[in-house]
Amino acid sequence: MSYTPHTGTADALAAQRRTLARRLILPTQILLVFIVAFPLLMQVYISLTWWTPLDGTLWYSAYESWNWFDNFAEIFRDPGLHGAVWRTILFVSIAVPIEFGLGLLLAALFYEGVLARPVFYSLILMPMMIVPAVAGYIFFLIFQQTGPLNALVGIVWDGAYQINWLNDVNRAFIAVIVADVWQWTPLMFLILFAGLMSVPHDQMRAATILGANWRQRFFRIALPRIKAVIFIAIGLRVIECFKIFDMLFVMTSGGPGVATESLSLYLYKQTFQSLEWSYVAAIGITVLVVLSVIAAIILTRTSRPSNTSEAS
C-alpha cells in the first residue's frame, strides 16, 4: 500500500494493471492446460493406432497396433457415424429455432405485461430445474402409446390411442424434440426477457407517442437492440444441444433402431459397447478440428458488428 498512484506515471499504472490481469487469468490458464494437455496428447496418440482395451494392454502400449490414419479414413466410410452427425445437426436445427421462437414469444408477452407476472415467471422456468435424465424418464412414460399424452388427446380425438410415439422412426424424433423444447425453451425465455428488460423504456415510450404500434416497436426498436443477447441465447443452446446425451439416453437410447441416435450416443456406444477407443479418439479429434474452425469463424465475424452496434 506504499504505492501511491497520484505520483505514479501512466506507464506504471498500466504495468500494475497488466500484472493484475496476468494474475487473475492464471488459474484459468492452469486449469485449461491441466485438462487439455494430457487428454489431447493421448487422444492424438491412440487415434493413430487400432488399440482397444480388448488388446489386453494399457493405452501406452498402443503403438503395437500402429495404423497411421486408418481410423481417420474410417470416419469417411462409416455410415453409422454419418447418420448420427446428420441426425444431430437436424435435431439442433429444428429444436433450437423452435425454442428461440417460443422463448421470444413468451419474452414479448411478458415484456408487454401479463397479470401475476412473478408467478408465471417462476412457473415457466420450472422445466429448467428438472435434471435432464429425470426429464427423460418423464417423457419416456408420457409418450407410451397407452400413456398420458394419448389419453389427453384422446379426450378430443379418438384416434389418439393408435399413435405409437417412441416405436416409430419419425414420431420418436418428434418426441425427443418436444422433450428438448419443453426443457430448454425456459432458458431461451429467461435470457431474451432479460435482454428486453434492458431496452431503455424512454425510447419505447417515445416510439409509442410517435404512433408506432406494438409490432413496429417490437421489431424495429426492441429486437435490433438485443441482437447480442439473441446471439448468446442461440449460441448457448446450439452448443449444448449439439452434445445432447442424458435425456436421449434415458428416453430412447437412440431407438427405435438408430432413429434418435445423436453423435454423443454414437460415441457412447462406440466407447462402451464396441470398445473402439482409438476410433472414438479419431472422431473426437476430427470433431475438435471442425468445431474449432467454425467457432473461430463465428467469433471473428461477430466481434466486429457487435462493436459497432454498441455505439448507438
Binding site: 489431447l40 449439439f242 477407443w277 473426437g284
Partner: peptide, 8 residues
C-alpha cells in the same frame, strides 16, 4: 462432446 474425451 465430453464422450469423445472422457476415456483419457
Amino acid at each position: 462432446p465430453p464422450l469423445a474425451v472422457m476415456i483419457p
